[in-house]
Every structure is written in C-alpha cells, then in structure tokens.
C-alpha cells in the first residue's frame, strides 16, 4: 500500500463517522483493519493498532478491543452502542465511532484510503 500513516482522526473526518466516546484518543495511527461480528474470530485475527468494524454494540466489544489493543471500534449500519458499552469504553480509553454505512461500504472506503487487513 502507500506506506503513508493514517490517523484515526483523519478517517473519522473523511467518512463522517460519529464519535461516541474517546475523542481524546483519536491521534492514533491505524495500522490495519478487521471486520467481523464473531468475537472468537476477532480475538483470533484482529491485530494491535487495527480498526475494528462490527455491528455489535454490547459491552463485551470493549474487552475484546482492549485485549487485541485495537485502535478503535466502528459500529456500522446505524447501530448504536449500549450505554454500558460507552461507560466501559470511556474507562478503558477505547474510541467508539458509529457510521450509517454498511460494513462493505466502509471497508471499501478504508481500503481505498490505504488501510488493509
């Protein structure tokens, strides 16, 4: 890919993602991306510094993101994180964004920008 460093803040701005929490932690480089709604799959395959795209909004996504050291979570398809998820994410300093795009559309855009899996 381009080898250019892409920050979370840039992706948020460019694709109009809504920041649900973690606005203090958006200055992170996105090292890659992973998309899945199966937690075992994410635990096995997501890598450190990756942006995780999912339609799950329940609190355990935060534990998964913390364990995998994901740079942030994007919940797609207009889905909303639960209140408890936001509470946990704030505590654990995990940025959560939401998008009206589908997983396919968002991943396509991220890939085009130079983020790969």
């Amino acid at each position: 890919m381009t080898g250019k460093k892409i920050k979370l803040s840039k992706v948020i701005e460019q694709f109009n993602l809504k920041i649900e929490c973690g606005e203090q932690f958006l200055d992170k480089e996105i090292k890659g991306g992973y998309v899945s709604d199966l937690l075992s799959d994410v635990i096995a395959n997501c890598k450190e510094g990756y942006i995780w795209i999912t339609l799950q909004g329940h609190p355990n996504i935060v534990a998964v993101a913390v364990l995998k050291e994901a740079c942030g979570i994007v919940i797609i398809n207009n889905r909303q994180p639960e209140e408890e998820t936001i509470k946990k994410a704030k505590k654990e300093k995990v940025p959560i964004m939401t998008s009206s795009l589908t997983a396919f559309e968002l991943v396509g855009k991220l890939y085009e920008l130079g983020i790969s899996g």
Partner: peptide, 8 residues
C-alpha cells in the same frame, strides 16, 4: 452477541 461460534 457474537459469542457461540464454536471456535473457543
């Protein structure tokens, strides 16, 4: 919730 994939 994304659990129960039988991969654990």
């Amino acid at each position: 919730m994304g659990f129960g994939a039988g991969m654990g």
